[in-house]
Each structure stands twice: as C-alpha cells, then as structure tokens.
C-alpha cells in the first residue's frame, strides 16, 4: 500500500525511523514527511496564525457593519411612520440598501463572495488576508446584523421611553442605553458567531491564502499523502473550537450570575 519509503521518495527519513517494524516505520515516515521534513510544521503554524487573524478581523468588520445595518433597520421600523421630509427619504434609502445587502449576502455562498472579492474587485491587491477578512467580514455582518437587531428588540420599550423622557435624542438613547444592554444580551451569540466564522474561513484557500485548511492541503500535495496533513488541520480546528466553546460557556455563566 505505502511505497517503500527510502527508495521511492527523494526525501530521506532518518535511519531510526526506517529501522523499526514495517508498519511503525511507515507510520513514522508519514509523520516525518508531514510535519518534520523541510520544517513543514511551520506551515501549520502560519496557517493557524492566518486563520485566527482572518477570523478576528472578519468578526470586527462584521460587528461594525452589523451594528450599522441593524441600527438602520431598527430605526426605520420604529420611526418611519412618524417621519417625513429628507430624513425619512435618507433613512428609507439606507434601509432599502440594508435589505438588499442582507438578501444578497445571505443568498450567496461565502466562497463565491470571497472569489469575487479577490479576483474581481480587488484583483490588483496582493494582501490576501486583508481582502479575505473584508470579504468574510461583509459576509458575517449580515448575520451579526440580525443577531444585534434581535438584541435591540429584546430590550424593554420602557428603556427607550425613559431615555427620551430625560431629553436624550433617539441616537443618544440607542448609544448610551439600548445598545449596551443589547450587546450584553447577545454577547454569547456573538461569541458563537466567532466560532462559526472560524470554520467558515476554511475556504480561504480558494484565493491561495495559507490558512489551516490550505496548509494541510498543500503539504498533503507535497507528500502525495493527505492522511496526516488533513488530520492535523482538522485537529487544529477541533482544538480551537473546543477552546472557544469553553470560553463562551464561561462567559455565559459569568453573564448569568451578574444578571439583573
């Protein structure tokens, strides 16, 4: 099944690996070429760094975008019946834009958005991480917007009324009173979005970005053997997801115990 290691391949494993029983030396050799030879382990580390950076940047962009989009949607829904003049026109215009954005982004695959972004819109850019972060951020923003909108709508109407009755405008009441509470309410859900995003960035290899998946893919190709490289990619994701899930659980418990 496995080619006899020492002859078939140009790379040479150390003797202590080749001298054991056959199955062990085969396995050892696979391991060796998947991780050690040519310092290949560094590629997984690079992939890990890129995956984390990409996910983090995308989430930041997604949250910023999500806040703006959700605010447009909520203010339109709450206020448009009582508005008039240019204010109503602009808010209506942005609300329509927001709806188109939500429809398009949620109606098309993230990987297609990524490829359009990299090969068409930013065809001249070499910065794969930034372009991918932007693309995933724009994608995530659509989902974050709906999460935050849900959070805002979960806040009792009396909070807005109390803010307005003190003399705060709509925007100031949102900023000081509604949004902080809405954020707290959806923090665990947002943290889960980070975990979802972490796995969704696995298609970054489509534009040649060396993330965890693409690192496994490249090394597998170089080794003519995908077993260990892809298992390693999977393992890295699993550990990350388990770790972040653990953190989210802690966060939820913390929030619940401070619940008022």
């Amino acid at each position: 099944m496995k080619p006899s290691a020492s002859q078939t391949w140009p790379l040479k494993a150390p003797d202590w690996i080749l001298n054991g029983p056959e199955w062990l030396s085969d396995l050892g050799y696979d391991f060796y070429k998947s991780f050690v030879f040519d310092n290949r382990y560094q590629m997984y580390i690079k992939g890990l760094g890129n995956t984390l950076l990409l996910t983090l940047l995308a989430l930041l962009i997604g949250v910023a975008l999500g806040v703006v989009i959700s605010l447009i949607r909520v203010s339109w829904d709450k206020n448009h019946t009582e508005m008039q003049g240019p204010g109503r026109f602009f808010l209506g215009f942005f609300n329509a834009l927001a709806k188109i954005y939500l429809t398009v982004i949620r109606g098309t695959p993230a990987v297609v958005q990524l490829m359009i972004m990299y090969f068409v819109i930013f065809a001249s850019s070499r910065n794969k991480v930034m372009v991918a972060a932007l693309s995933f951020g724009i994608n995530s923003g659509a989902y974050v917007a709906e999460i935050i909108r849900g959070g805002i709508m979960s806040i009792d109407e009396g909070q807005m009324e109390a803010g307005r009755s003190l003399g705060f405008g709509y925007v100031a009441t949102m900023r000081y009173i509604i949004l902080p509470q809405a954020f707290k309410a959806v923090l665990p859900t947002l943290a889960n979005e980070f975990i979802v995003l972490l796995k969704e960035t696995a298609v970054a290899g489509y534009v040649g970005l060396t993330d965890v998946t693409y690192a496994g893919n490249i090394i597998g190709g170089n080794c003519y053997d995908y077993l260990f490289p892809l298992l390693m990619s999977a393992l890295i994701y699993l550990i990350l997801v388990m770790f972040f899930t653990f953190l989210v659980g802690k966060l939820e418990r913390r929030l619940r115990s401070s619940e008022r």
């Binding site: 009324e161 109390a162 307005r164 009755s165 902080p180 509470q181």
Partner: peptide
Amino acid sequence: INLHRQKMGMVFQHFNLFPH
C-alpha cells in the same frame, strides 16, 4: 422636543431604571 423634555421629568409605572 429633546430640549423641552429636559424640563419635564417623567416617572413610569415600571420604573424603567437603566439596569446596566
């Protein structure tokens, strides 16, 4: 209206304190 409301305090049935 925001300016006028500053001079009209309001107290609600359900308090509406800011919980955070």
